[in-house]
Write a protein that binds this DNA or RNA. Structure first.
Lengths: 153, 153
DNA sequence: CTTGGTGCAAATCGTTTGCACCGTC
DNA sequence: GACGGTGCAAACGATTTGCACCAAG
């Protein structure tokens, strides 16, 4: 688990440095929450992460998980995504890509497209904007849902 | 003929038909809320629409506005957009375009780009998806915020 | 006169905050 | 020891729901 190991360690040091740089403290809880967060492969809600954390560390409260997740975003370790139905999911930072979401079964496929990125920059420039980030979500029915008729509507 | 007039009437009949088709009733409130909604040019939150409606029809309750807005989405008259910070805005349907958002002052510029739309279709097809909609948001600093230094961060 | 709609207030949901105590630095 | 972090429970803001009454069909 070379790469994975590297990501874990990199994130850990990144957090440590961020905390030190801001006069904040490294705690058991923050390490545990980061570990759980990194253990998740794709996307997760604050709530689910809380459940997930609690399974292993029953003494960690919800407030701490919410606070930590916000901290991770500030530290550049996580990114918050707000989806169509109002749900907020968090994903690892650096893991940048866009999303193709099945409205039938909820599957999320990630994609990258450099051509689109280029057009985005051009559009921003045309309007005098300096881009900092973007969010690109495509919604539709995946192959399975199309054949199973879930796409009726 | 003002297209606006056409849009208003079109929306009104569309709602009437939707209600009839689903055995639902056409009420004063629904008409009033639709009118207020159509009177808004860009984007609006449920809450703001409630205030806006209440200014003209003080006897209409919040629940009714929320219920109506959801109804409009089902009827294909409105679309809900979930933004980065968790805020939900509604916009008129058919008014399709994507968004360039200033994270400094909150300005929202709308844009369209056929090339990007083409790439989206290609990506979806490559993954076996049948697209139904998409949401494409670009975040950055507008020219004003860049020169006023609001983009410091 | 039947059935869906409305207003109100209470309930709910996810998230945040105040506070007394605890652990890091 | 000082000061930030934590857990808990209470507070919160936006949205939803239960219910008795109202009105469109």
């Amino acid at each position: 688990m070379s790469e994975h190991q590297t990501e874990q360690d990199g994130a850990r040091t990144q957090l440590t440095e961020y905390l030190a740089r801001n006069g904040m403290k490294q705690t058991r809880q923050r390490e545990a929450i980061l570990e759980s967060f990194l253990g998740v492969s794709g996307h997760i809600t604050s709530e689910n992460l809380y459940e997930y954390v609690r399974a292993q560390y029953p003494d960690i409260g919800a407030a701490t998980v919410y606070r930590a997740l916000k901290l991770f975003c500030d530290a550049g370790l996580a990114h918050a995504l707000h989806f169509q139905d109002g749900v907020t999911l968090y994903e690892h930072e650096g893991h940048h890509h866009d999303h193709l979401i099945c409205v039938g079964c909820g599957e999320i496929v990630e994609f990258e497209c450099d051509d689109i990125e280029d057009f985005q920059l051009r559009i921003a420039r045309d309007h005098g904007y300096r881009l900092t980030k973007h969010r690109h979500h495509l919604y539709g029915y995946c192959a399975k849902c199309q054949s199973s008729g879930t796409d009726r509507k």
